[in-house]
């Protein structure tokens, strides 16, 4: 009942279903798939005989943002670029769970051929320009992608995602200024989960209202609900339209919560049980499920069936990734450069 109370509090966006529900169920399914993928990743990482190495940052709790962007993403002309918490967005844009899991296992069939790992998922085919490991380091790259869209007059939009920790890097301020000067069609979206590793926003940002960190750049800057899929999609709609029609960038703070630690080694001692229980009431998947039930688009049986489907899909991906080949030793020398030298052109 508690989740339903949360749903009741939100502004009413859609009272009657617009479709047969297949689109909405697709969103729900994708959020479930991401959650299942991340929770299974947690298990694969922590169980004996660990198959996943390196740093690994899970997305559980923030799924509405990735799915909301994917829902608005134009696969012919948009770009997405992200920090290191990149599994969810990659799946939402169409990466197969197998290619994602194989990358976590370091396999040759991984989305980055086993050379990127958890923080560096790429899919040029999906116009997913990567997971990037250095906090804030990718924000200027987003500007470059958006610049190319203006240069070529494609009408495309670049979605640049980063965490609340990244806004304290110099690249953030430099990029927002340049983006506004050049009217770059870019949405700078902070996934504000309230804590940069273990440092709460209150201890890292002198301005507590993070949306105001986007002021001074002559661009719209505002908050959206990052846990409520409908509200999130509604909240970014004007910014997308603005970017597509030459109006330039926007700075958007999507407020959310991560259910897991910063990375796998994080025991989350900076959080209280009460805080986490409160956050669970606004679990994006539960919120969306309840709201779909309310308008008659989802039954208990359908919800169970979806859970079973995504569970089977992830299990199959793990099995396949496990059976997939290790990269050859020689492959480590491949792709360091795109050209062969001496180069005559």
């Amino acid at each position: 009942m508690a989740v339903a109370d949360e749903v009741a509090k939100r502004p009413s966006i859609r009272k009657t279903p617009r479709s047969d529900g297949s689109v909405e169920l697709g969103y729900l399914r994708m959020m479930m798939l991401i959650r299942r993928f991340e929770e299974r990743t947690y298990r694969e990482y922590t169980k004996p005989g660990q198959k996943i190495g390196g740093f690994c940052h899970l997305y559980s709790g923030q799924e509405a943002i990735a799915v909301g962007i994917a829902a608005r993403f134009d696969k012919k002309r948009d770009y997405l670029i992200n920090g290191y918490r990149c599994h969810g967005h990659s799946l939402a844009l169409g990466m197969s769970p197998r290619a994602a899991m194989a990358e976590l296992f370091g396999k040759a069939t991984g989305c980055s051929k086993g050379k990127g790992g958890s923080m560096h998922f790429f899919s040029a085919e999906n116009r997913n320009m990567g997971g990037h490991g250095i906090v804030g380091g990718h924000i200027p790259l987003a500007l470059g992608l958006a610049f190319s869209q203006t240069y070529r007059e494609t009408g495309g939009v670049t979605y640049c995602l980063f965490g609340d920790g990244a806004i304290n890097q110099g690249t953030f301020s430099e990029t927002l200024n340049l983006a506004s000067l050049y009217k770059a069609p870019c949405l700078f979206i902070v996934e504000n989960n309230g804590v940069a590793m273990g440092t709460q926003v209150e201890r890292s940002s002198a301005e507590k209202d993070l949306a105001l960190r986007g002021s001074g750049f002559n661009m719209p800057h505002f908050h959206v609900d990052g846990n409520d899929l409908d509200q999130f999609m509604e909240g970014i709609a004007d910014a997308i339209k603005r970017a597509r029609t030459g109006g330039g960038p926007s700075f958007i703070v999507a407020n959310t919560y991560r259910f897991r630690g910063h990375s796998m080694s994080d025991a989350m001692k900076y959080r209280t049980r009460e805080e986490m229980e409160q956050a669970k009431l606004r679990d994006p998947i539960s919120l969306y499920e309840v709201s779909l039930r309310d308008i008659g688009l989802l039954t208990d049986q359908q919800a169970e069936a979806l859970e079973e489907e995504v569970s089977a899909e992830v299990e199959q991906a793990i099995q396949q990734a496990d059976a997939d080949p290790q990269p050859t030793m020689e492959s480590r020398f491949e792709d360091a450069l795109a050209e062969t030298y001496p180069l005559e052109k």
């Binding site: 470059g144 992608l145 610049f147």
Partner: peptide, 28 residues
């Protein structure tokens, strides 16, 4: 001005812009 572009003094910003544009297939 489309192809010869002044920048403010933001080396990280505009060098990164170049990298992103190159990733999208331009040749900055």
């Amino acid at each position: 001005p489309r192809r010869v572009i002044d920048t403010p003094i933001s080396e990280a910003g505009f060098s990164g812009l170049g990298v992103g544009a190159a990733m999208a297939g331009l040749r900055p």
